[in-house]
Design a protein around this nucleic acid. Structure first.
Lengths: 85, 85
DNA sequence: TTGTGACTTAGAGTCCGTT
DNA sequence: CAACGGACTCTAAGTCACA
């Protein structure tokens, strides 16, 4: 799975979780409306600056937008083990 | 603190932690040595594709390279609480 | 081993639309 | 409200010579 797809999915999921339209998010992050649409369809490799601005608008960490969606029991265990390091 | 600085610091720190030279990392990630040098000096806003390639070469998650360096006891507690969600 | 300037080009990012 | 197109600008991406 390409990193841009991970980012696209996280972006769309988080935006919808906040009940925001692409246009509202675009305005908050000061990014073009059509560009956000493109990002959610994995058209472009966003720069980390854009990732950061979107993260701020969505009130999350920039790193959260690049995290691979790993849910379930196994993933939680892996997370716990990562902490133990 | 700009996101590109966070990235630059994480990149340099992780690379040195692995005992790698810029040239070695460049070869592993298939990126030019001088470009890695530029990234470590916060010259560019890297794309998430580059971040991902460097993360793979350093054997970490792409998200880890964008994490703000928050070490110490307080940070670990915060991490634990984040897990509790 | 790394920093830096000069350079080219591919693609990120913007702005106008229509469907 | 979102997908999608064309045309544009600017910067990241990538290479090289040299300190």
């Amino acid at each position: 799975m390409e990193i841009r797809e991970v980012f696209a999915l996280n972006l769309k999921a988080l935006r919808q979780a906040k009940g925001m339209s692409q246009e509202e998010l675009a305005h908050l992050a000061d990014i073009d409306r059509t560009y956000i649409s493109s990002l959610e369809r994995s058209i472009y490799n966003a720069s980390i600056d854009v990732v950061d601005r979107l993260a701020n608008a969505l009130e999350v960490e920039a790193a959260d937008l690049l995290k691979k969606p790993a849910a379930g029991r196994k993933a939680r265990l892996a997370k716990k083990m990562a902490l133990g390091q």
